[in-house]
Amino acid sequence: MSAVTNPATVGECLRVGAGFSQRDRNWIAEQFGPLDARLASFHADATELEISVKDREARGQKVTLECWIGGRDKIVTTSSEEDLHAAIMDVRDDLRRRLNDAKTKQEPRHNRHLRDVVQPEPEAAPETD
């Protein structure tokens, strides 16, 4: 497996949509820092994130985070939390879970090479006379 030469990061891939300003972008990118580890296995030029909020700070606001990764289905996470910070954390955590699930589904379950790896034998206890 080859390493990604230009790994995706939140700072590079995040766009703010409706309801957020460019000033909000830096704060959101800080909150999304934990996603960098998960995104690093994808190429930056094939990865996009967009966050938007409908009816910001109103009862019933809805935060939406969309993620596009080349060669994969688009992932959309939403939150209806009334607190904006909580809603942002909710969509971040849901995206991280869904990326983990997608990666697990793509890993081979029945890889013969992995099954045939020889396990080391336990050391025998020394005999006493």
Score class of each variant (00 low, 15 high):
115 R>Q: 14
86 A>M: 09
86 A>W: 00
75 I>Q: 07
114 L>I: 03
84 L>I: 08
84 L>V: 10
120 P>S: 09
77 T>N: 10
103 K>R: 13
89 M>L: 15
75 I>H: 01
93 D>Y: 01
84 L>Y: 06
86 A>P: 01
97 R>H: 12
110 H>R: 02
84 L>S: 08
104 T>F: 05
115 R>C: 03
113 H>G: 07
107 E>A: 14
88 I>Q: 01
97 R>M: 11
111 N>Y: 02
81 E>R: 14
119 Q>G: 06
116 D>G: 06
108 P>E: 05
118 V>Q: 12
91 V>S: 03
92 R>E: 03
91 V>H: 05
107 E>C: 02
116 D>N: 13
79 S>D: 06
85 H>V: 13
80 S>F: 08
82 E>A: 11
86 A>R: 10
117 V>G: 06
123 E>V: 13
79 S>M: 03
91 V>L: 00
116 D>Q: 04
102 A>K: 04
75 I>W: 00
94 D>F: 02
106 Q>H: 12
90 D>Y: 09
111 N>L: 11
96 R>S: 14
103 K>C: 09
80 S>I: 03
102 A>M: 09
111 N>D: 15
123 E>Q: 12
121 E>K: 07
83 D>Q: 10
114 L>R: 11
94 D>C: 04
104 T>N: 13
100 N>Y: 01
115 R>K: 11
92 R>D: 01
110 H>Q: 06
84 L>G: 00
89 M>K: 12
105 K>W: 05
104 T>C: 05
111 N>T: 05
85 H>M: 05
115 R>F: 15
80 S>N: 07
